[in-house]
Design a protein around this nucleic acid. Sequence first.
DNA 1: TCATCATATAACAATATAATTATATAAGCA
DNA 2: TGCTTATATAATTATATTGTTATATGATGA
Lengths: 113, 113
Amino acid sequence: MKQIVASVDEVATVLKLLGDKTRLTMMALLDHHDCCVCELVEIFQMSQPAISQHLRKLKDAGLVKETRKAKWIFYSMNKEHELYSLIKNILAHIPDQQEKLKELKERTKISCE
Amino acid sequence: MKQIVASVDEVATVLKLLGDKTRLTMMALLDHHDCCVCELVEIFQMSQPAISQHLRKLKDAGLVKETRKAKWIFYSMNKEHELYSLIKNILAHIPDQQEKLKELKERTKISCE
DNA sequence: TCATCATATAACAATATAATTATATAAGCA
DNA sequence: TGCTTATATAATTATATTGTTATATGATGA
């Protein structure tokens, strides 16, 4: 893993974005699987606009990408981001979040699949 | 370097603290040298209370320690913090900040030494 | 003990953030 | 085309953050 050196501003911006529990968890999820907005709404038990707004911040910073598939929009980690190595380092320090997605699929039929 | 896994809350708290340009730079400085409040005031060209308040947040989270030496209070990195390895990873992604201290010592006589 | 220096804390103002509700947009389908 | 579903955006509100000025505290030294 290359150790990219970026400006203090760039790093601080990424840290501020990840310094929110919801967004940090989202990034951990997206690092393993693309997620549809509707899945994230269910996982975080939060209003759809709240989820969209978090996603927009991540997208505006270039941390995630979006792809439309029919009615749904899937978000994915932008692994080409200059600071992706930093993000991986950070995510290595939190517990795996994939059970959240697994648990969701067990308890609810989600529309996007 | 051990890869400690902490809770999402704990990691998000640290990231939020480091997600501020001033505090991120402070941490980079403190990782190499203990700093007196008066030095930080000069380096950041910010009011003394503003500096004290940033330091307090870092101290409250256990990221830095303080030591009084005569009239001065020196702050230092708490290398025993559970998430110090994460902090080191983060700091490895920003440019070295030590010139700021060097430059300060060249331009001004600071009282603490 | 009193004055001074270094720092912390309190009070406040300006701004940023994050959530909600209401509404707009865009795709898919009868 | 018009209805439904999925998502985005706007408007608003509540709260958090960051900085400033004013003041308190605590150590030093005459």
